[in-house]
Design a protein around this nucleic acid. Sequence first.
DNA 1: GATGAATGAGCGTTCATTCAT
DNA 2: GATGAATGAACGCTCATTCAT
Lengths: 224, 224, 224, 224
Amino acid sequence: MMIHSAPTQEVAVIAQPRTNGTTDKRRRILEAAVHVFAARGFYNARVSDIAKEAGVADGTIYLYFKNKDDLLISLFEDRMEAILGRFRGELARVPDAAGRLRRFIELHLGMVAEDPTLAEVLTVELRQSAKFMREYKAPKFGEYLDLLGQTLELGRQTGEFRSDVDPAMLKRAVFGALDEVSMVWASSRRRPYELEAAAEQLAQMCTHGLLARDASGRKTGESP
Amino acid sequence: MMIHSAPTQEVAVIAQPRTNGTTDKRRRILEAAVHVFAARGFYNARVSDIAKEAGVADGTIYLYFKNKDDLLISLFEDRMEAILGRFRGELARVPDAAGRLRRFIELHLGMVAEDPTLAEVLTVELRQSAKFMREYKAPKFGEYLDLLGQTLELGRQTGEFRSDVDPAMLKRAVFGALDEVSMVWASSRRRPYELEAAAEQLAQMCTHGLLARDASGRKTGESP
Amino acid sequence: MMIHSAPTQEVAVIAQPRTNGTTDKRRRILEAAVHVFAARGFYNARVSDIAKEAGVADGTIYLYFKNKDDLLISLFEDRMEAILGRFRGELARVPDAAGRLRRFIELHLGMVAEDPTLAEVLTVELRQSAKFMREYKAPKFGEYLDLLGQTLELGRQTGEFRSDVDPAMLKRAVFGALDEVSMVWASSRRRPYELEAAAEQLAQMCTHGLLARDASGRKTGESP
Amino acid sequence: MMIHSAPTQEVAVIAQPRTNGTTDKRRRILEAAVHVFAARGFYNARVSDIAKEAGVADGTIYLYFKNKDDLLISLFEDRMEAILGRFRGELARVPDAAGRLRRFIELHLGMVAEDPTLAEVLTVELRQSAKFMREYKAPKFGEYLDLLGQTLELGRQTGEFRSDVDPAMLKRAVFGALDEVSMVWASSRRRPYELEAAAEQLAQMCTHGLLARDASGRKTGESP
DNA sequence: GATGAATGAGCGTTCATTCAT
DNA sequence: GATGAATGAACGCTCATTCAT
């Protein structure tokens, strides 16, 4: 298994082809926002703190983002964009649903291990955003969830998973499990468990728990 | 299965022995806080809104709670107290670990079905609290998680569950799954799935996924 | 002539029948706003300056007024209310249009002489308000202008004034003349002319200029 | 009478002898400033809006004007310069004071009819400027007023007007009347009166109201 | 000269908390 | 205990102005 999943190829090849000033400043602000939001939470984070950490003036932030809310949203979309790209590539390599589910779990927790700070923000602040901006639909996050949903649906249709699995609900359940495990790990100073081991256990639980047939080939009981 | 799990005994027996004014006012404030926090989120909720909804003056809130943070914390502790009592009673009736796990899942989602508003607050705002009050340890919430942890540990020790299950991590995973499923259900105007069905599926996934032996009695592979 | 037109009756009798706290604080804020707006202009006036001058906290202003704009508007309406009351009473005592026009001029300039600071604000800031709040209709100011308009219309209908006078336009002209004369007088440290003399001259110009017949009883030329 | 007083000669003769870039850019900025100040008012106008409308960069404005205030001041001086030239030429053709006064009124309102946008700015924003820049003396505006003042003084000295007319005050009154009538006309979407008719009425009122003798040759009463 | 990205001082407004009644 | 008017610290955001290119 590969938790510290080294960014496979594209990242290794070229980091930032063109570092034009604009992109750079925007990137620095987002980077700073991750740290400050992680450290203080969205509501307690001061825009001026982010500016200071990014090494720009307060006003500069408003050249790149509409307001504080937009900064958080952009952060989500920006990071999710990259994550989605990587996940799609990785999942495509795995043919069976159970394998994909396992890979997803490994990738998710691998990502958390790589960048705990980002994980904290994506994990904790996403919830509030659902509250404080009723209108924000987090499209990228929807796509992320759908990677899970599609995997579950695939397994259901191929008969790999039980016919009664409800992807719309279970994608939330699996995500919720990963998210909580991630948050606890990322938030606590002294890491309470190994993420690699966690990935293995969660993969076991999720895949075994959903399989249509057990190891002996016997059909598992489906809900009536 | 029993999602709309009617409060079994204690609540029915002693409703409110003494309705002294003080307790009543405190209760009304907490009640109002649930609604306002659910509707607007902790940070966007104004103390004066809670006061208005509770039918008391703004200042009165500070007679019962130290500050806004304390109001949220007290809300957690207060509700968790009741929940813990009920859960402990219910779980004690089930002898085996798998059955207890299933019962916990049913109770948790049943609780959400009973009081979605409360679920929204407990579910969403708990996350932020971890952020905004580093010091707050949420003792009752720890006890709640431990009900899960003890069940998992029980199963592990009796050999019902695989020997490698890590209760400290898995209690988080199970809780995360329940929490996310609850939040989505409680937050969306039109309920995206049935909570009863969700309980059944989650119980299946969690119990089957953790069992030491499959239905044929064969040992399931444990992680090396 | 009576420029320093002593407030005839009502004001002399009872100033403020009930000085309840609320009214008092609101009054002090409005009073302070007059001074600060007069001294610095609406846009350069800081809300905190007004608060300081009123002897209240910044936030207190927002208990009585929606925002800074509303403070200016309320100031207009409040002062105009009182002015309208006085003017209506005074004008009713004069039967002929020319006399009323003269009395209006005397009252207007008398008011300026009494409270130059208020005059400065009413005079200068009213213009901008028309600009910066397109929606604000300044109803009381409309009534004030109509006192002039009605006087002109009266004179036109009784034949006292020429039949071609256009009250809608001329009320603006007369007001504009008074306003400009007032503003210059109130704004300049060393008063450039006597307001009493100005009132006499303006009254002469306006009444003679509008009369249907000159002193010899001959009809004055009307515009074709 | 000639309200739509076509720019008599000079403008037709020399349009723009040299369109060197510098002058052109300055001109475009002033032009844009007129529109933006008229549309939003001085304080609500953003320098960047003016730059955009002028088709130049924000910084360019500061190559031609010291700051935003200076832009407004320069606008006044620039436009007044042209206006003064035209007015002086026109007034010189009229020998008697009453005729000149009438001509001034016609020219002023004619100017407003020609360029209402400019009128709005000159009219409304001039007031604030008196407030926000105590030091700005608006020399050209002073000259403009003096055209009126000199006319009144002329009439007084020749005995055409009553001997007690106070030019220093009355020039303000006449200007105020014209200004208010202009502002209302220029500001309201649907023009509330005809400017030509207004000019005629104001000319009547001002001249008749000031004449030393009425149509029958009888001396009008002077103030004691 | 021209640009426009960057700056940062400045201000309006909010709202948790206090305390005189 | 209960009130709610008053407080004032705190912060998001704007925009005139600068200056490196």
